[in-house]
């Protein structure tokens, strides 16, 4: 059993060691157990590409890939993910070497202010994988025959709010990348 000492009331608790692989790089941290994965990325690893939009699981801006699956980094604690790997928007591509989805977002204007964009991108990567694996959605007609469609994308990306409302352009961008077969 891994355990930290019982909390004296009001006091801070000892920090705990955690090892995370982020975008292929291993980070050994000692961290307050209250720190979310999101704040670990932003405040401790200075990877501010992952955004804090609501911090309560209601906007999707903090979406990252955790062991390859899209999750909300604001609703999980870093200490729970010792030994796991995280991919953030910075790990998808760089300005000089954009991931095909990043490139498609630029070409289709799949963003405006850009704040929800990293979440939309990580969510799109996860979504394309989920569709490929046959994970059904709310709009899937036949649970055993998941196929790609704009309607499927809209439903599956609905956890990523864009107040600037680049929605049609995001759907166009992801659809194009899916058609080209290089969204992974």
């Amino acid at each position: 059993m891994t355990q930290s000492p019982q909390a004296p009331s009001g006091a801070d608790l000892p920090r705990l060691p955690v090892t995370l692989s982020v975008n292929g790089e291993t980070h050994e941290l000692t961290i307050d157990p209250r720190v979310t994965l999101l704040d670990t990325l932003r405040e401790h690893l200075h990877l501010t590409g992952t955004k804090k939009g609501c911090d309560h699981g209601q906007c999707g801006a903090c979406t990252v890939l955790l062991d390859g699956q899209r999750v909300l980094s604001c609703l999980t604690l870093a200490v729970m993910h010792d030994g796991q790997s995280v991919t953030t928007v910075e790990g998808l591509g760089t300005p000089d070497h954009l991931h095909p989805l990043q490139d498609a977002f630029v070409r289709h204007d799949g963003y405006q202010c850009g704040y929800c964009t990293p979440g939309q991108l990580c969510s799109s990567v996860g979504t394309l994988d989920e569709i490929a694996r046959g994970v059904p959605s709310h709009v899937t007609a036949d649970l055993d025959a998941v196929t790609f469609s704009a309607e499927e994308l809209r439903e599956r990306l609905s956890g990523n709010i864009c107040r600037c409302a680049a929605y049609p352009n995001i759907i166009a961008a992801v659809t194009e990348v899916h058609a080209a077969g290089d969204g992974a």
């Binding site: 990877l47 501010t48 590409g49 992952t50 955004k51 804090k52 953030t88 928007v89 910075e90 998808l92 591509g93 760089t94 300005p95 000089d96 954009l98 990043q102 490139d103 977002f105 630029v106 070409r107 204007d109 963003y111 850009g114 704040y115 964009t117 990293p118 991108l121």
Partner: peptide, 17 residues
């Protein structure tokens, strides 16, 4: 298309915080 686009889509555009 937006000239700052590559920065935004790669998480390199710094917002206030």
């Amino acid at each position: 298309t937006r000239i700052e686009g590559p920065l935004k889509v790669s998480g390199q555009a710094p917002y206030a915080y």
